[in-house]
Design a protein around this nucleic acid. Sequence first.
DNA 1: ACAAAAGTGTTCACACTACACCCATGG
DNA 2: CCATGGGTGTAGTGTGAACACTTTTGT
Lengths: 230, 230
Amino acid sequence: MIPAYYTHNSRFLIAVDCIILGFRHKELHLLLTRRPVEPLKNEWSLMGGFMDEKESLNEAAEKILYRYTRQRNIYMEQVGAYGEVNRDTGDRVISVAFFALVKMENFDTSLARQFDARWTHINELPRLVFDHNQMVQDALKLLRYKVSTEPVIFNFFEKRFTLPALQDLYEAIFQMPLDKRNFRKKLTTMNLLDKLEMKEKESSKRGAFYYSFNQKKFARYLAQGKRFSL
Amino acid sequence: MIPAYYTHNSRFLIAVDCIILGFRHKELHLLLTRRPVEPLKNEWSLMGGFMDEKESLNEAAEKILYRYTRQRNIYMEQVGAYGEVNRDTGDRVISVAFFALVKMENFDTSLARQFDARWTHINELPRLVFDHNQMVQDALKLLRYKVSTEPVIFNFFEKRFTLPALQDLYEAIFQMPLDKRNFRKKLTTMNLLDKLEMKEKESSKRGAFYYSFNQKKFARYLAQGKRFSL
DNA sequence: ACAAAAGTGTTCACACTACACCCATGG
DNA sequence: CCATGGGTGTAGTGTGAACACTTTTGT
């Protein structure tokens, strides 16, 4: 039985919109779709959906992420709630934005066709519906903060990566060039990575060694009272 | 006329909860109230209220802030949206938390009685209803980030402040002691403050000079490509 | 043999840390 | 005159920035 206190207030539609980011060809990419409904049908939009009664905000976001990527255990952070009165021109909708980092290496491209979706270079975004461009800006700002204070950058990769690729990714996220030696020095000094024996040979003739992030080394690192900083 | 797309989805109560912070007697304080309704009537709670159809999230937060503090133009940041299914035991409610920094120097204490409110030391918080303790933790984390990257700390004061008070405040926010000379050196190096001629004589016999934050100096500072860091 | 990307150390400037004594005033 | 908090400088250490050449290998 619901107390009377609750029954006399307005109720709202709640949407969840996801900024789905991936890394490929030295560029950050954002997954967009053509909005399937009026208003603004066929305009570019983030992946989103309405929240259901039986699910939490996080569950709603996970549902959307799974629907469009078929990946589970995706790294995800809430960006914030957007509640301007006329932000959605169809009806009053409060939207909660999340950003997510997916592994683009093994991305199922048939999904893209199914949902009229497309990966777009982060620097060549079209105009998006409603306040979605603002959400993307806010998500990127939060991403930069997270990347520089926690080891989240590794979530762009399926386990292993090369140092040149990691640096390209870092440069794409922060939109600034970086000195190769300083970058590598920083990483080796932290001592969080394992150097693998295999080399990646697609993007160069010489080949670059693969590395992987070592969770146990990271735990030890924290136990020493150090805090991650990139 | 609302498109059919919107009409078949669930609608939710949306609450706005405010983490109202102030500084006094060398301590951070949080404004709490006794929850006036069931369930959990009379338990400690953040200041909050339900969102109205005609207002944005920010406006709803501003409304609550004004109701309980009678202050306008309060510095405020959104902390995030909280959407666990059973977080509010009365009904399904999605809550958006904001933190706000108010000037406690000229706080109207009659308001406190009127709303059964009380300023509580940040280190002696009672158990709060629902997930409000979590909101406070998240707010403090965000506050620390904001304080260290933008000149928001000055919003705790009505225009002027002494350096000892500023340092006490910084130490309260970050919960760590700080070297007096290093702290002052950092501030004077940034050159964002104006030293006033007046002294504050309540907390010491000698008296400490007042300073004020100079917005124009800050604009110049940014124009030089420097970025604020405390 | 050459083009293209991987890999590797040192120096310098600056920011952060640690640290101790004198000053002004009210009681 | 003394207790209390306000105010001041320097030396050392560590972190971030700048910088150029050798190695590997596919074509």
